[in-house]
Structures are given as structure tokens and as C-alpha cells.
């Protein structure tokens, strides 16, 4: 793992991966949008409103996936002091927050016509809202210190503590009775969803993952460059102070 922790190596790897992740994201999201809006049937109960699912469900997966990635990067940063892990955790946070926000918003837009309410304080919806606040807390904390290292450390601890929320989200619909229905795709006995509807769902999910990789590379590059700028500036100040 340490082999990839070197910023120079990351930049070289990023250069190779970026065109591929861009292409996969564009293709999958393009095809996914076509199947989601045109190439898939209406649901036998929910009619056309089921199309919201193709944004809502992959967004929910990404919200949780990004949090797990962030927590893993944070653990790597705390335990092994990988020079890159902090930067990758920091780069993942806004993507996770964006998808969690999308999940909540599209869920609301779906809940109004189907359930009859924009929002319900059931275990699934509430734990998802907590996830959004954890992302906000992380992003605020990571920038709250003058010394970036202290910010990274504090935020990494928050990311690890907040990770207990992820299994609560996943199994809230099984542990307690909720307004939200249980899982359809990842469950014992195979998906309870017709294959014609599974296609756009999975296309969108793969597209979102590729999108995350592209954003991770872009934000990672920005963080590495900013770090180098900081080091050069410090050296200049140092040199100026010595020169006087």
C-alpha cells in the first residue's frame, strides 16, 4: 500500500486513470440516463415516479460508500501516517456530501407523491440526515485549524467515530419498522427488482463510482499542488528571514 502513498506516484497513476474514469463516467451516466428516462418501463404500482429511484438509490449507495472510503483513508492516515491518505479523505468528503444531499432531496421528491409526505422521522431517513451532518462536520473541522496537520487529525477522528452510523443506515429498515421500504437489490434471495429496471440502476451506480474516481484525482491534484505551494512559501519566508 505504501507504494501508492507517494504523491509523485499518485500523480503518475492519476494521469493514466483520469481519461478512463472520465470515459466510463460519461458512457455509463449517458446510457444510464437514457435507460432511466426512456428505455425502462413504468412500475406496476408507482407508475412513472419510479424513475426517481435511478437517481435516489445510487446516490444513497454513494453517500455510504464515500463515507466508508473516507473512514478507511482516515484510519490509514492516523495509523500509518500515509502522506496521501489525509488528502484523499479530504477530497472524498464533498463528493459524499453531494450524493447524500441528492439522496435526501430525491427521496423527498419521491416520498411526496408515493408516501404522501416530504419527510418522516423514521430510522432510515434520520440516520441518512445524520450522515449529511457528519460530512458537514468533517469539512468544517478539516479547515478549522491554521495548522493543516491538526485539522486532518481532528477530522480523521470524527470520520472514524461517525463510521458507526453507516451500519445503522444500512440495517435500520430491518432493525426497526420504518416508513422506508427494505432493501431491494442487496438482499437474501436475489434482487426484488425486474431486470429491465436493474439495468439503469446499475449503470448509474457504476457511472457515479467512476465520477467519484475522477473527482478524487482532480481534488487530490489540487491538494498536492497546494501543499507544495505551502512548502515553497515557507521556505521563501525562512530564506528571507535568514537573509536579513
Amino acid at each position: 500500500m505504501h507504494r501508492f502513498a507517494n504523491p509523485a506516484r499518485f500523480l503518475r497513476l492519476a494521469k493514466v486513470i483520469l481519461p478512463w474514469s472520465n470515459a466510463v463516467a460519461a458512457l455509463c451516466l449517458g446510457a444510464g440516463l437514457y435507460f432511466a428516462l426512456l428505455g425502462s418501463p413504468a412500475d406496476y404500482q408507482q407508475g412513472e415516479s419510479v424513475r426517481i429511484m435511478y437517481v435516489h438509490v445510487p446516490s444513497a449507495w454513494m453517500g455510504m460508500f464515500c463515507y466508508v472510503a473516507m473512514a478507511v483513508f482516515s484510519a490509514m492516515a492516523l495509523i500509518w501516517k500515509h502522506p496521501l491518505a489525509d488528502l484523499l479523505a479530504k477530497a472524498t468528503a464533498p463528493v459524499g456530501a453531494a450524493f447524500t444531499f441528492l439522496c435526501l432531496l430525491t427521496g423527498s421528491l419521491w416520498g411526496k407523491p408515493m408516501w404522501g409526505t416530504w419527510w418522516a422521522w423514521d430510522a432510515r431517513l434520520t440516520s441518512m440526515l445524520i450522515l449529511l451532518f457528519l460530512y458537514f462536520g468533517y469539512m468544517a473541522l478539516v479547515n478549522a485549524f491554521d495548522d493543516p496537520e491538526r485539522g486532518h487529525k481532528a477530522a480523521a477522528i470524527l470520520a472514524l467515530v461517525g463510521a458507526v452510523n453507516v451500519p445503522v443506515i444500512k440495517w435500520s429498515v430491518d432493525w426497526w419498522n420504518t416508513l422506508h421500504q427494505p432493501a431491494s437489490v442487496v438482499k437474501m434471495g436475489g434482487p426484488a427488482i425486474d431486470s429491465s429496471m436493474l439495468v439503469p440502476l446499475l449503470l448509474m451506480a457504476v457511472g457515479f463510482k467512476a465520477y467519484w474516481i475522477s473527482i478524487l484525482i482532480l481534488r487530490g491534484r489540487a491538494e498536492i499542488a497546494a501543499q507544495k505551494v505551502r512548502i515553497i512559501r515557507m521556505a521563501q519566508i525562512h530564506a528571507a528571514a535568514q537573509g536579513e
Partner: peptide
């Protein structure tokens, strides 16, 4: 005072359901 519908986890087109 309020009625909310709950839907199940099954998604399929009408033809398949029929």
C-alpha cells in the same frame, strides 16, 4: 389525521406483475 402509504421493495413493470 394523516395517512401515509408504504410501498414494498418489489419493482417491476405491469406486464411482469400480471
Amino acid at each position: 389525521t394523516e395517512v401515509l402509504a408504504k410501498h414494498d421493495e418489489n419493482y417491476m413493470p405491469k406486464e411482469v406483475a400480471d
